[in-house]
Amino acid sequence: MDARTIIGWNLRRLRVERGLSQERLALAASIDRAYVGRVERGSENVTVTTLEAMAMVLSVPVASLLIEPDPDALKPMPLRAGRKPAS
């Protein structure tokens, strides 16, 4: 797996685990939502500064975005579509 794919895989996994949409992550990290999608698909070269901003929003060290997933790991599932219910 190449570095861009690893970063995208980990970003999506961590984002979904925390229940964040791409839009919410992007807003909190001050980046474009479409950029987050391209990073998750592995089609964007990410700067260290952007990795740091996304890691901060996800409350993880930057290094956690660079850890190669287990070869048998299932692809991270998407969040359920639509708005969250009011709490």
Rank of each mutant, 00 (worst) to 15 (best):
G37K: 04
T47Q: 10
L20H: 03
I31N: 13
L14W: 02
W9M: 10
P78G: 05
K84M: 14
P61H: 03
T47S: 09
D32A: 05
I67H: 04
L58A: 01
M56G: 14
L66W: 04
L66T: 00
P71L: 08
A34R: 13
A26I: 06
N10W: 09
N45S: 12
Y35K: 11
T50S: 12
M1Y: 07
P76T: 07
L74W: 14
S43F: 14
R24E: 10
V62E: 02
T47Y: 09
I7L: 01
P69K: 09
S43K: 15
D32S: 01
S21D: 03
E40V: 03
A86Y: 14
L79F: 03
S64F: 11
K75M: 15
R41W: 03
R33S: 05
M54K: 02
G19R: 08
D70G: 13
V57C: 02
I67Q: 11
R18W: 06
S43T: 15
M54Y: 05
L20M: 03
Y35A: 05
R18V: 05
I67A: 03
R80C: 06
T49S: 15
D2C: 08
L27S: 03
L20S: 06
A28H: 07
E52R: 10
I7T: 10
E68C: 02
T5P: 13
R33A: 05
N10A: 06
E23Q: 07
A26L: 01
T50H: 01
M54F: 10
N45M: 00
P71C: 06
L51S: 02
L58P: 00
P78S: 08
D2Y: 08
Q22S: 08
S21Y: 11
S43Y: 14
V57T: 04
V62H: 01
D2S: 08
G8V: 07
A81S: 12
E68F: 00
V36E: 06
S87F: 15
I6S: 07
L25K: 11
M54Q: 07
V57A: 02
P76S: 09
D32W: 04
R24D: 10
L66F: 02
L14Q: 11
M54D: 09
V62R: 12
V36A: 02
D70F: 13
R41H: 09
A86Q: 14
E68A: 02
P78D: 05
V16G: 12
V57F: 04
L66V: 08
R4M: 13
V16M: 00
P78V: 03
P69F: 04
E17S: 11
R4W: 06
V36Q: 07
L25E: 01
W9H: 07
L27M: 13
G37N: 07
L20P: 10
E23G: 06
V60Q: 05
L58R: 03
T50I: 11
V60N: 06
G42W: 01
S87I: 15
Y35C: 12
P71F: 05
W9S: 02
T5E: 14
S21M: 08
Q22V: 06
L58D: 02
L20N: 12
I31Q: 04
V57G: 01
T50E: 03
S64W: 04
D2H: 01
L14G: 05
S43D: 15
G19S: 01
T47F: 08
R12Q: 13
E23K: 11
T50C: 12
A63R: 14
E40P: 00
P85C: 12
R15H: 07
